[in-house]
Design a binder for these strands. Structure first.
Lengths: 219, 219, 219, 219
DNA sequence: AATGAATGAGCTTTCATTCAT
DNA sequence: GATGAATGAAAGCTCATTCAT
């Protein structure tokens, strides 16, 4: 049912209403999902109501239950959509840098602090969902998938780095530490968007890496 | 239902109903606040209703509006209460260790991973509140106060360490990094309480510290 | 929860609002139940909405869910109330006539065709409920109890009559026949209230009885 | 899902989709009507929705408003269809027995208790409709027509019997009594399909007839 | 001070109906 | 003629808040 990997810049792009019935349907679906992200990130899950979503999406009340059978399903499918988006971004990042694995690691970190990923809308959405996971357990897979994929990618990159550097390190500790840091910085950015310094945050992550790979990462 | 490792105050201790009017009032107040923590951590802010709090606290419906003028005020005052509790715990930690500052730093970190602080009830409560800060801005001070106090304490300790070690380090980066990590590990623990390994998490934080203070912290 | 045998002509009588809180609550409860009977009998179960009930009862919207937790519960408790009312009427009938059992049998039949029992409100209510029993199975007990009690009373009376008359008859067939007839006449009355002739219907029932007890009932 | 003992017409028989445009239209129409009977008898009028009918009939959503202009019209035309079906069954019964009128009377009664007529689908449908007649007065004619035709047929048969027997009886009372009984037994069967005994019910009707025509009907 | 019945705005969801394709 | 996406009024229900007792 939900296997509709919506392309952000295709026929269903939001700015222009498409012509064919099928495309209009997908376009409406995407409008609602995008509006849901807006509303969740702005008001939190507690403040996310159908009324706010339909107003933001500028569609009729009943449309939510036409495209998604319930509010819960809407949230779940929006989480799915956001998970795919995040995965795609990182996949692109990993493909771009095809030379050294250390550059790929850096690129992953830079990406997580880029404006595309680290913005109030995206971060607000994920934090809202994650902290409500106990009462909406269906979203857990999407929350977890996102983490697990990332962790796996990083682990592989660091294994490569370890081989290259001919060193032995506790890679899992490094990866867990990075991920905890990234998570923590996301929260910091969410609470203090004005004061947050992306470059400084990146430096701190690199500082951590230098503890395990001093020859690879400069303090 | 939920484990409650947080210790209550003296007069207002929950187990026995006090005699004097004033004490009864404080006792009721505390019962409601404790119940609110339970409900918020279990159901999230979206699932926190007066009915659930009243049922959990075993008090009459109207009492909430007698002690707290509104649901929002209840949440804010509960946040305040939790903030104080957290501050007190760290104050106690810092007073206990009166010898070396490195031990105090370690004690702070250990404390943040202790069962008293890192449990589903406490973490669930804070995450729920923080991710809703945009729509309940009045709680921001308590969220921030908690962070700022902690950051300040750590900064002072590291300055001391820097002087002792006769080294120059970017202390703020270290502290920001630690705090991001702690935040991130809290989230990790919240989402995966079974798999989470407190000792390993502590090791990773120490690993990070060893990057800046290799002579003080063993990898 | 539902053990509230409301007395029709007591403190909770509908015409005057009582003074004490407890009595007001019971008075509101009764108002809603009476309004439910009105609405169900007038619009059928398909047309029975909370809005219509609260309008008819002249109470606030939320009150239904204060007194009855859901619409279904309201219908079930109204069925219970009506079942008790019907049972009480027949009990009174049976107590009044303390002489001959043949008079008691007749009194039962007369009662079922009296204006107190056979009116559009009562009949409309029961028919609506009975024909919806498949989709609201919780009302089955009240529908059935009403029937079973009646059948039992009649069986006992006819057993007595059999002994008195020193005859042997298939009493169960007689009772089943009477009950089917009464049911059918209720329906006939419901569909054609103007043309329906109570006296004639009674005569027809008596005619049926005369087939088994010719000496007791005149054709 | 539900047993469908009612036989369909020739051209519009449901099993094979016809070829010509006109026949396809009639075929669709019949599919919807049959589905409506299923849904009404299973869920009652309160639970009869276009969605359920459409799903049961396996036709497109909009088709209902193509063939029938509204839900009400669909119900009315389904009532009409069912009325015709019932009438046809009795006509067949009356034609078959071309010898004695007493046999025709018996055949009418047997027919009303046959599995073709007395099944949960047919009875459920009629009871649902009848008890909603106040809020859907347009179906009254079909409900009544069914009754009136039957009453008329029976009256004529009994007049014949009266002449044959050379007796004078109150025929209308007999007919009204029979019809009330049949109605009541239908209800009894609807509520207790497992316990209901068709043969016993027939015996009880015959017992009633023996009160007026003792020489014709054996007790 | 404490109670809990009462209120009504606002929530999610259902649904008959419309209409462009 | 057939389709099914779209509509929005109305349904049942939840809930923070009020207030007479």
């Amino acid at each position: 049912m939900t296997n509709k990997p919506i392309k952000k810049h295709s026929i269903t792009h939001l700015s222009t209403k498409p012509k064919t019935r099928e495309d209009i349907k997908a376009w409406h679906r995407l409008k609602i999902i995008e509006a849901t992200i807006d509303v969740v990130s702005e008001y939190g899950l507690a403040g996310t109501t159908i009324s706010r979503v339909v107003e933001e999406a500028n569609v009729s009340r009943g449309m939510i239950n036409v495209h998604f059978s319930s509010k819960n399903r809407l949230l779940i499918e929006t989480a799915e959509y956001m998970g795919e988006l995040y995965t795609n971004i990182r996949k692109t990042v990993l493909l771009k840098q095809n030379d050294k694995c250390i550059d790929k690691i850096k690129a992953c970190i830079y990406s997580d602090f880029s404006e595309e990923v680290l913005n109030q809308r995206v971060v607000g959405f994920w934090l809202a969902l994650r902290s409500q996971v106990k009462s909406l357990p269906e979203i857990m897979p999407y929350v977890d998938t996102r983490d697990n994929f990332f962790k796996n990618d990083l682990l592989n990159l660091f294994k490569e780095l370890e081989t290259e550097a001919n060193e032995i390190n506790n890679i899992e500790m490094v990866v867990d530490g990075i991920m905890a840091m990234l998570e923590g910085f996301w929260f910091d950015y969410y609470l203090h968007p004005e004061e947050f310094d992306r470059a400084k945050a990146i430096d701190i992550v690199i500082l951590f890496l230098s503890a395990s790979f001093p020859s690879q990462f400069n303090k």
